[in-house]
Design a protein around this nucleic acid. Sequence first.
DNA 1: AACTACGACAACTTTTTTATTGATGTACAT
DNA 2: ATGTACATCAATAAAAAAGTTGTCGTAGTT
Lengths: 231, 231
Amino acid sequence: MKPILETDTDFFCDLQAPCFQTLTTDEVELVRTSKTQVLFRKGDNLTKQGTFASYVLFVIKGLARQYVEGDNNKTFNLRIIKPGEFVGLSSVFAKNTFNYSSVAITDCQVFLVEKEAIAQIIRQNGTFGLGIIRRYVEQNSNLYDTLRTVMYKQMNGRIADTLLYIDSLKAENPEIFQLLSRKDLADFAGISTESAVKLLKSFEKDGLIELHEKNILVVNHRELLEISKKG
Amino acid sequence: MKPILETDTDFFCDLQAPCFQTLTTDEVELVRTSKTQVLFRKGDNLTKQGTFASYVLFVIKGLARQYVEGDNNKTFNLRIIKPGEFVGLSSVFAKNTFNYSSVAITDCQVFLVEKEAIAQIIRQNGTFGLGIIRRYVEQNSNLYDTLRTVMYKQMNGRIADTLLYIDSLKAENPEIFQLLSRKDLADFAGISTESAVKLLKSFEKDGLIELHEKNILVVNHRELLEISKKG
DNA sequence: AACTACGACAACTTTTTTATTGATGTACAT
DNA sequence: ATGTACATCAATAAAAAAGTTGTCGTAGTT
């Protein structure tokens, strides 16, 4: 019997992703030997906040939602994780545990690399390290934006931000809105589900967006941006 | 701001579980410093088949379902994980990855111990090791039973086995059947959901069980056992 | 060839989850 | 004190998932 979900060979774009292009043959080999590939099905957790993190995840295919968990079932959505992105990078450098959870919103083909291998490669391959740092910096910057949004904006601005963010993913993932419930959107904006529903209706009435079941069409991008800025 | 889900102190039965009673003060300290505690919510994965396993999970509270994943969305349920049980023990000794998935069927308070700590304690505390081995052996034996069931029994025997197994958990967890769907039961028996539904009805007609929505009452234990034996 | 033991599919019903709406309460700002 | 910006609750509607049943096909048995 052969293992079913962990075969190396059945996924052609193995280490084809841009960020691995700078690796030497040896380094590719190191990654290859210390990696495993897993299919996360829609609904599976890629990471669970608080569990030990001994590896980094790299999404090859599929979409996931990253969120932080608070008390009594509150969740706050941070971002949509796309193919080509890492999850749990901080485990390599600092914290021993994942500081957020993430869940597949479509089936996700992911590979996992043990953190020691990543650390080793960064040590010896500056270009690769630079790429990692770049990603890190960007995530960090996004976090600041999010923080600002949560601290200073109110409902309208927040949901506008959320809509703009999700809409920005639509080019690559036209089905993205269908994958998110009203609660998911609310949790991106950090407002109650009911408020989200009401605001969406109100935005629709004002001709900013169109609601087609779960799909949302941004009609007046400019004005949404305005609302986002006003806060 | 204090961390929300990982506090040490907010769960009194910390290391009260029987299997930790033989630990010395030092050993308790070792566990304590290399553990983290996490609340898995209903539906969260405790483990995902194929991911790197650098720790062992110990369930303090709540129930989970352990299963193996096959091709195209087939899952086969292995057991219900109860409080006081370990998940992912094999990661300590052998395989570097979890060889099964598990998912919380109620909220689960769990603590995670890094495998090196467990290994260290086993090295120095034979009694503790013995307990671990005992668990291991039992799980192993159960696996053989399962294998036999799957290989040699047919529908009636399989679903009878499943009913008897779940029923055996009912004393401690009266709500257990309500936590499982027909598909879950079918996946314990390794048969199709439709077959499971039909068999349950037929067992009810024959007076072996009573179906009250999702709850199932085993009426004729003896005869079910008979069916299980006949295969 | 007829039979048995299933799984797969389709149609349908029931249950559960998600979405929606209005009403009420509260804290904070003006 | 009054208004604004929400959350929360409750009631309901709509959508999705789970459960049910009958029919059929196929593979292995007798």
